[in-house]
Amino acid sequence: MITLSINKKTYNVDVDPETPLLWVLRDELGLVGTKYGCGLAQCGACTVHLNGEAVRSCVTKVSRAVGQEVVTIEGLSEKGDHPVQKAWLEIDVAQCGYCQTGQIMSAVVLLKANKNPTDADIDAAMAGNICRCGTYLRIRDAIKLAAQIERKEA
């Protein structure tokens, strides 16, 4: 039995410790906001926070998450009103929407370290997240808006 702390809740799961965190979240715990895209840490759709750092859960063994704080999109905010989520809605970023939870999780980590990111900062931080619909320009705008919202709320 493996004990995990996810979104400030404790979960006990009976899985092979080698299982990627992604599949524990999706198949065992029903936290399906974290997406499967490639299984190789190439697309970023599966991004979650491990102790506040963005990790690709598709290549992160569940054993690595033991004793750590995991946050998924479901735990980012209680009412779906994290500044980054608000900005995503305001800019109406999504097309198909499949990659967007991963994009949001990456953007949140960027904004923690950098309160006022430039285009170049955003390009560097977000290059690991693929959006096949091509919403990159809106993601950039939404990150800048989220930074503004965070500054205002601070």
Binding site: D27, V32, G33, I73, G80, Q85, L89, D92, G97
Partner: peptide, 27 residues
């Protein structure tokens, strides 16, 4: 007019085929 599913998308609600789940389902 904004995407009516925007909120569900940014909060990671089950929307997609791969998210579909029923009790006892096999893969």
């Amino acid at each position: 007019i904004k995407n009516v599913e925007g909120k569900k998308i940014v909060t990671g609600e089950p929307l997609f085929g791969l998210d579909y789940h029923v009790e006892g389902m096999l893969i």
